[in-house]
Amino acid sequence: MMELLAQVEYGPLAVKPYSTEWLIGLIVTFLLAAGAAIGLSKVPANFRRPIVSIGTFLCGLIYVLYWLWPRPVNLKPDQVPNGMVEQVGKGLSDTLPLLADVANILTSFLLGLGVYSLARIHFGKIIKRQSDRGFSWVLIVSATMISVFGFVDYILRSQDKAGKLVDRENWGFFNVGQDIMFDGLLLQMDSVMFSLIAFFILSAAYRAFRIRSVESTVMMASALVLMLSLLSPIMFQWNTMIAQMAKGMNIPNADPSIPYPGGFFHNLQISDWANWVKGNLQTPALRAVDFGILLGALAMGLRLWLGLEKGGVSV
């Protein structure tokens, strides 16, 4: 199985494009797969869960085997693996890009579900003549426009063998339209949506960032130190002042022009406080959170892989 998957690009399953054998292979494979899918729809209810679980398990198993199986060391791309162990190891390693493709392609198909749902909701609103159906029209028209302009732009660029469209001067109506809709509107609105949060943070900080308990005080102090440290031109002046003071007290290496205070005077720099907080308190706190997340992902991964996740694959 591994060898078959790994060598699919170079074996009998890879043929000349648009040849008769390709067409026959394509049709037969599609009919077989579609037949299998139709056959699956007739499967009794008690077999459904095992089918999904086995599929999930086999897909995960390839990665687990890749992790556990010994791999040939320093094997060059054109070198033939030596013995069964090396062959399987190389086969597993060669299979990873194929698996990435499979996941990408299936993800792309499934993303279509989101678009379909969105279209269903908004066409539903228009058909039912709801009061806010005007906005649904706006959504559908803008989605259609960018799709049409985007696809035409893509086709024009694919057919542009001479590379004329690399220069903007040679763009046509659809290239310009796509650029206006994508770069001029979509990307800018994307940015606006994210930037709105800044306004809400400011308002929320004013209303909710209050000294009410030890925890909130600790949190606010840490946030203030970090925010002050971000004001680096001001911190530069502050550090210069500290370094001047240190130089006045003949501290070795103190140099206000860098500014570098040297010795104990380092501890008076707010940027150093922030670094200390980040290095000794923020990093361990976040690492602890990360360990928790990783353990959770590992546990969830095992549950999904072994079919123990009731919600995930119960059918």
């Binding site: 698996l99 996941a103 993800t107 198909f109 590992l298 969830m300 999904l304 694959v313 059918v315």
Partner: peptide, 22 residues
Amino acid sequence: WMSRIPIGIILGLWAGQQLLNY
């Protein structure tokens, strides 16, 4: 229930990577 087959494949591939990732 059949919609879980492609999702199961994607999840299986994700789940298998978690041991390495951890």
